[in-house]
Design a protein around this nucleic acid. Structure first.
Length: 138
DNA sequence: GCCAACGTTGGC
DNA sequence: GCCAACGTTGGC
């Protein structure tokens, strides 16, 4: 049974389009203890929503974890980790923050409540609803 | 170990 | 560009 997550990225730093082009990437640069805890809980095959912050403010699609956490090569303290992900599905229609906030279930998502958390957990219920809103099957 | 100050993030 | 929210740091 896979778990579900939400990854936040600023499009000018690393966008969904870039991930589609690259085919896969390593999710580095996490410097937050709670986000690290989530990264370390990720398992191969878990699905992650890919959210654009600052610009766009919407979930662009779903990525899949292809490699579980390992030391972040961009970190020289040895404290932080990253995971490898690849694109899984692009949403036909990006799901905006506004839609999420207006939805009775989604407005309680961890990522809405903790806007600063770059990696947050998503429940199976939330996952299904967002897939539906995005126009793809779960 | 607590709490105030500070810095950073992110929505608007 | 502003401001609110929150995580982190550092002094006690």
């Amino acid at each position: 049974m896979a778990n579900y997550w939400l990854l936040k990225s600023e499009p000018f730093k690393y966008s969904w389009e870039q991930l589609l082009k690259d085919g896969k990437t390593f999710w580095d640069g996490v410097r937050n203890f709670q986000a690290r805890k989530n990264l370390m809980a990720m398992k191969k095959g878990d699905k992650c929503f890919f959210y654009h912050s600052n610009e766009g403010l919407c979930i662009m699609g779903i990525a899949e974890v292809i490699k579980e956490h390992y030391p972040d090569p961009t970190d020289n303290t040895g404290k932080w980790v990253c995971v490898d992900i690849k694109p899984y599905k692009s949403f036909k229609k990006p799901v905006t923050l506004q839609e999420i906030k207006e939805h009775p279930v989604l407005k309680n998502m961890q990522f809405v409540k903790q806007q600063r958390l770059s990696v947050s957990a998503v429940t199976p219920e939330e996952y299904e609803i967002i897939c539906k809103l995005g126009g793809v099957s779960a």
